[in-house]
């Protein structure tokens, strides 16, 4: 029973990682950059939802939508202001800019909401639980896992069936050729950031519903772990992000439960290193050939 409890906790945490990892993997696949600030967009999303509920008195669904819209705009703004001027620059320059952006968001949040952790309202998702024999599954867990599946299916359909989704795949494969075929590369990259950031808002609310402590650094650790998950599953691959996220969540919870609580993070990162050494393309990624 305890084993199953851990497994369900792991699946829930893993689903949150998976949703965050989707944002990383899409941006990485299309803009070829590690958006370090993605984790902090999660934090902003959670704060907006928190404010919507606590200060502005919005109903949960509206607060949630406001957070999503805000994060979408934020993501597009970040891309336009900081990353677009560096389209031609080396990956080192882009990565340093992204780290700067991550710190900027954290410190702005620190100025607005202060360093004291805020208790995220549990009223967001009604706290009822499902009883299966001796198992207790909270509704937050169920919703998280379901949201993950829905998002993944929607995204897969979007990228494979719609015109915009196909444009995204083209840009990811060959930016120059896509441009020649009349695809607006800048707009496609903006769209990717918009989708990734909207997902980040969802992840933020789900994360804080399960782990209700909200502070400016809330997003950074899950963000880095979700990137690990994206690499684990194969960066650029949508099913890969989901698989990697879920596996990583389960590994983390089991590691904490059966090996050592203090070493939970170390175990997660050790997984990353082993994966990169053994199968650098990730579980579902395609090995990339280098063009000279």
């Amino acid at each position: 029973m305890i084993f199953l409890d851990h497994l369900i906790n792991g699946l829930s945490l893993g689903s949150i990682y998976a949703i965050i990892a989707l944002g990383y993997t899409m941006v990485y696949g299309i803009a070829k950059m590690l958006n370090f600030a993605h984790g902090d967009v999660i934090m902003v999303g959670a704060y907006i939802a928190f404010c919507g509920l606590q200060y502005w008195g919005l109903p949960p669904v509206v607060a949630f939508l406001v957070a999503m819209v805000f994060c979408t705009l934020l993501g597009v703004t970040i891309e336009g202001l900081a990353y677009r001027p560096l389209r031609q620059a080396t990956s080192l320059a882009v990565l340093i800019t992204a780290i700067g952006m991550s710190y900027l968001l954290q410190n702005i949040a620190l100025m607005i909401w202060g360093a004291n952790p805020k208790a995220f309202p549990t009223t967001f998702i009604n706290d009822t639980s499902l009883h299966l024999g001796q198992l207790n599954i909270s509704s937050a867990t169920l919703i998280t896992i379901m949201a993950n599946v829905v998002i993944m299916v929607t995204l897969t359909l979007f990228t494979s069936r719609t015109k915009l989704g196909k444009a995204m795949r083209c840009v990811s494969e060959d930016r120059g050729a896509a441009e020649l075929m009349g695809i607006n590369v800048n707009r496609t990259i903006s769209l990717t950031f918009a989708i990734g950031s909207a997902l980040a808002a969802i992840a933020g609310v789900l994360l804080c519903s399960s782990y209700p402590i909200l502070q400016p650094t809330t997003g950074s650790m899950p963000g880095i772990k979700a990137f690990t998950a994206a690499v684990f599953g194969g960066i650029g691959s949508i099913p890969g992000a989901m698989l990697g996220g879920v596996l990583l969540g389960v590994i983390e919870i089991f590691g904490k439960a059966y090996i050592s609580t203090e070493l939970g993070d170390a175990i997660v990162f050790a997984v990353l290193i082993v994966v990169l050494l053994v199968k650098p393309a990730g579980l579902l990624g395609k090995p990339m050939r280098e063009k000279v």
């Binding site: 900081a82 320059a93 800019t97 780290i99 700067g100 991550s102 410190n107 100025m111």
Partner: peptide
């Protein structure tokens, strides 16, 4: 840290754009 973050972004944009 706020100033540092802005410095990182601006230096990178100014030297690479």
């Amino acid at each position: 840290m706020l100033v540092y973050a802005v410095v990182l972004i601006l230096v990178m944009i100014f030297t690479n754009n």
